[in-house]
Design a protein around this nucleic acid. Sequence first.
DNA 1: CTAGCCAACATAGTTAACCTAGTTGGCTTG
DNA 2: CAAGCCAACTAGGTTAACTATGTTGGCTAG
Lengths: 118, 118
Amino acid sequence: MVKNTGRPGYLQIADDLRAQIQGGSLAPGTPLPSTAQLAEQYDASLSVVKMAVGILRNEGLVIGQQGKGVFVRDADDSPAAGEVAELRAAVQDLSVRLAKVEEQLATSTTRRSGRGSR
Amino acid sequence: MVKNTGRPGYLQIADDLRAQIQGGSLAPGTPLPSTAQLAEQYDASLSVVKMAVGILRNEGLVIGQQGKGVFVRDADDSPAAGEVAELRAAVQDLSVRLAKVEEQLATSTTRRSGRGSR
DNA sequence: CTAGCCAACATAGTTAACCTAGTTGGCTTG
DNA sequence: CAAGCCAACTAGGTTAACTATGTTGGCTAG
């Protein structure tokens, strides 16, 4: 799992978790899976998972409690809902579509196409 | 540097840089010192500096350009350090990638010299 | 002089390892 | 039984190393 959509893994995981939170799949007050579980689930290293969680923590969507876990914050508390979520969905959609185009382009062109634009 | 006040180092550095940006000490358009320079300046490891810069990047206060540097964004552009800034960064990312795709597409149509079309 | 190669330096991403610190539950000891 | 220790698991922070990719400027070959 995790890419190769050109979007870095830690952002993909953050996106996914954010979507689960805002989609209600992860209800407020419930804990996320542990770092180790997420790492296995996404087939990623612990580091990228920690980075992803760090982003959500930074955004205020979750609150980490040492020794216990990372808990989803109340949606009312975090001002993330609304048109912002809409824009986020749109951006994510564009990311996926663009990634596909980029991939097609990458496979149809050879490496090392000398473009010496300067 | 980087105290001892319980606040993690990467947040301290991010705070300091943020203050410099918003205080005008680092004007919009100007590049931050390189990662290595910041590491020496704050007497921190490269990792924590990268984390600090990553935060500012995530907040939309700065924009990193691979191979060139990390540049301070216009204060008007990045008002709220939050979801909006994040989305703006995502849009920026999409713009850059789309521009590249468009460029490749344009060159491949003009120069139709047998680039292995799969 | 021009074109192309190449080294140096930049950000960015990923991984792995180690340490701190809080929590929990079981086990041992008195 | 009760108190306390201890092992296991949790998040968080830090560091180091490696890879990828982009930019720039200097050097060299023609």
